[in-house]
Amino acid sequence: MDRSSKNTIATHSGISGSSFAFTVSSPKLWSPSLANLYDMVVTVDRDTVYSYTGFRTISRGVVNGIERPLLNGDFLFQFGTLDQGFWPDGIYVLPNREAMVYDLQTLKNLGFNMLRKHIKVETALYYQACDEMGLMVVQDMPSLRPLQTETLSNCTVETILPNDAQQAEFQRQLKLLVTQQRPFPSIVTWVIYNEGWGQRLNYYPEFGLTDLVRQLDPTRLIDSTTGWYDYGAGDFSGNHHYANPQCGSPFYSIPSSPYDPSRIGIQGEFGGIGNNVSIDHLWNVQEAIVTINQTYELDTTLDAWNYRSHRLLGEILDQVKMYACSGGIWTQTTDVEGEVNGLLTYDRRVLRPNVSQWQSDIQALYNAGAARTNASTPVLSSF
């Protein structure tokens, strides 16, 4: 049923326990600008289940010689935040739905069309809110472990890698993530590994895991190794670079890899500039406070923070205009304990961005992406 008109647009009967397909004629497509959704009613005997869906395609193709992500067949520059989902009164547990929606609505109001849900899986209400608001979601697989090393008896240092049982459990839970979350239309990309955390570097498991995710869900793109240790798996070629972006460009910094033009160029993380507010808005725990000076850059005033943000957004704008940058992820939505680089403070009381400036800068990214598109270019591959 069309939510706006309340008209029934399609019906179908099938046999329980068996899959079936049917056609919906000329549906309104889902996008960040028009988050069209349709209500569904499934009746089996005396039981009735209510749900919803959205119609949209996520694919990749060459547009004016550059590999691009495509939404409903067209290139749309994707710009979002790293969204860790931490809360001072519940850590990983949000206080209520209204608080969750406030974060998402703040991003939408600033002009973001996407977010990266960083190494956390949220409740169904979260993805439902993204579906209804029109926020694309890049969904991380929670990392198996951070990068750690140990010193052996011969004084050599080696990276601690997952053993076979840990790797098997990681794969099992990756399958659960994809099968559980794939009904939500807002999810457009799966991320398997973040910055090498838990990534076995001795036999490149990301290739097999990418194939597994593709089999489970051929309708979305896959960022197999965001950050670094990228050996060519998946749909994206990106790096993480604080504070300055290096997006689809002919320059990069180790440990990231050079841009691979056979895949989509994206800035997986950048920004990260901080502003230390009063103790009233910080996570008032000494262990967190002493880590504040590890922030990539600290700006002493909000005016300085907005100036630096404007400069960095201008840098990625240049890379959209000049090179092959197709998307970016700003770090981050909110402060997280000792990290004071959020658009919002940890208590959500202070919004750092100059709203009109950020809206203008973000819109400029979308305009630059649109200026480089060509709707007549054929899609080379679709997922």
Score class of each variant (00 low, 15 high):
Pro27Asp: 00
Gly90Tyr: 00
Asp335His: 02
Thr300Leu: 13
Phe383Tyr: 11
Met136Asp: 05
Val93Asp: 15
Phe86Ala: 13
Leu152Lys: 14
Asp103Leu: 01
Ser16Glu: 12
Ile279Leu: 13
Ala364Phe: 00
Phe20Gln: 03
Asp39Ile: 05
Tyr92Lys: 15
Phe270Gln: 06
Pro146Thr: 13
Thr151Phe: 05
Leu216Gln: 04
Val137Pro: 02
Leu37Asn: 10
Leu317Cys: 02
Gly198Trp: 02
Thr373Gly: 12
Glu315Gln: 15
Phe184Gly: 02
Ser326Glu: 12
Gln357Leu: 12
Met322Ser: 15
Phe184Asn: 06
Ala99Gly: 14
Arg68Gln: 09
His240Asn: 15
Val178Ser: 06
Gly134Gln: 05
Ser253Asp: 14
Ala168Tyr: 01
Leu34Gln: 15
Asp2Val: 07
Pro69Ala: 01
Thr333Ser: 12
Glu315Phe: 07
Asp303Asn: 10
Gln173Asp: 13
Gln105Asn: 12
Gln167Asp: 07
Leu343Cys: 02
Lys28His: 06
Gln319Leu: 10
Gln359His: 01
Ala165Met: 09
Glu287Gln: 11
Ser153Pro: 04
Val379Ala: 10
Arg60Asp: 06
Pro185Met: 01
Leu351Gly: 12
Val44Ala: 13
Val137Ser: 01
Pro88Val: 09
Gly271Ile: 04
Phe22Arg: 04
His12Arg: 08
Pro258Glu: 03
Val336Tyr: 02
Ala364Glu: 04
Leu177Thr: 08
Asp280Ile: 07
Arg348Cys: 02
Thr53Gly: 10
Pro69Asn: 06
Leu216Gly: 03
Met322Tyr: 11
Cys155Met: 11
Thr11Cys: 00
Tyr229Thr: 09
Leu365Phe: 06
Asn109Ile: 12
Arg348Leu: 05
Val63His: 11
Val191Gln: 09
Ser51Lys: 09
Tyr252Gly: 03
Gln166Lys: 10
Ile264Leu: 07
Thr373Ser: 13
Pro185Gln: 05
Glu269Phe: 09
Leu147Pro: 08
Pro185Tyr: 00
Gln128Arg: 12
Cys325Lys: 06
Met322Asn: 15
Glu132Tyr: 05
Trp190Ile: 03
Glu339Ser: 08
Thr225Gly: 09
Tyr127Val: 03
Leu174His: 03
Asp223Pro: 03
Tyr346Asp: 05
Ala324Asp: 15
Met136Arg: 07
Pro183Thr: 00
Gly271Ala: 01
Asn306Gly: 09
Leu313Gly: 04
Phe251Pro: 00
Tyr38Asn: 05
